[in-house]
Computed example of a mutant assay.
Amino acid sequence: MLQNIRVVLVNTSHPGNIGGAARAMKNMGLSQLVLVQPEDFPSGEAVARASGATDVLDAALVVDTLEEALTGCSVVLGTSARDRRIPWPLLDPRECASTSLEHLEQGGQVALVFGREYAGLTNEELQRCHFHVHIPSDPEFGSLNLAAAVQVLTYEVRMAWLAQQGQPTKMAKLETTAMLNSQLVTVEELEAYFRHLEQTLIAIRFLDPEKPRHLMARLRRLYGRCAISRLEMNILRGILTETQKVVDGAACKKGEE
């Protein structure tokens, strides 16, 4: 589906920005790059900034007009950082992503259009877009680098696509995965841990058995809120065991004195 989104860069002046945009696209799973009258392309600087996304650059289509770049598209979204005299449907990056996916689901082609580094898109060019997209950056320093703007929009598109596909947006660490897949402790194992914990707390004089003040009840409630795996229980029991060894060693040393 994402292969039906094309990123259109209009009259880009710095080839490094083309390479940076290509890298941003490939990071997010997009591959269609269209360049409208770039000032310097092909370029070694573009290749250097692409950092491995040279396949996107090699497949880039170079055209003379925005009309050519938009051929076959069913929806066009143009980025704009300035207020315009003529009101136009305005979207933020997240709305841009959801709108793009709606059209992709219907089998359409989507174009994300980015203007010149120094001036953006002209009013005439923006009027060829169905929607305008504004990235709500800090108004005190609102000018984004071209490749950064491409990254923002393509990131939102990917996040929306992952959610639509029911795919995770976070990569679980191996340790976390192992923990989730391990067997949970039984009631008997948890009770054994509480006995061990109580003994250790008494040994380090954190718990006074004459004046317990509901400490163990509070700890039971705390652990009761957690789904403790056997791996985690082994860690907890190991901590208690090593703590007791330190306490016993200190007692023996004191006795020798």
Rank of each mutant, 00 (worst) to 15 (best):
G78L: 08
T243A: 13
Q3T: 08
L240E: 05
V7I: 15
A60M: 12
R195G: 08
L90W: 01
P93C: 07
H14P: 00
V185A: 13
E124S: 12
Y155A: 03
G249Y: 03
M25Y: 04
A119G: 10
T200L: 11
G72P: 06
H14C: 01
A60R: 12
E198N: 05
G108W: 12
Q106K: 15
S31P: 02
L61Y: 00
K170G: 04
C96D: 09
A203G: 06
Q37K: 15
R82C: 05
Y193T: 00
P89D: 08
E68Y: 03
Q109P: 00
S143I: 10
A148R: 04
A50C: 11
N181R: 14
A50L: 05
Y193L: 05
L77E: 07
A48Y: 01
R230E: 03
W88H: 15
T243Q: 10
A163P: 00
L174V: 13
N123V: 10
K170D: 15
V10W: 00
P42M: 09
I5A: 09
Q167F: 10
G238V: 02
A149I: 10
V7H: 04
V185L: 11
P209S: 04
N27K: 01
E257I: 08
L66M: 07
R49K: 11
P15D: 03
D40C: 08
T186N: 10
E140P: 00
A111Y: 05
A192S: 06
G120S: 08
N123D: 14
S31D: 12
T54P: 00
V187S: 15
L91H: 08
H103G: 04
L33R: 08
S229R: 10
M25P: 05
R213T: 00
I228H: 03
N123K: 09
A178M: 14
I228M: 14
A251I: 13
V113G: 01
H14S: 02
I18S: 07
P168E: 07
L77R: 08
L236C: 06
R82S: 07
R128A: 12
Q37V: 02
G78F: 03
D40Q: 09
V152S: 07
R158W: 04
Y223P: 02
A163G: 01
R221V: 07
K253I: 08
E210T: 03
L61K: 14
G255Q: 14
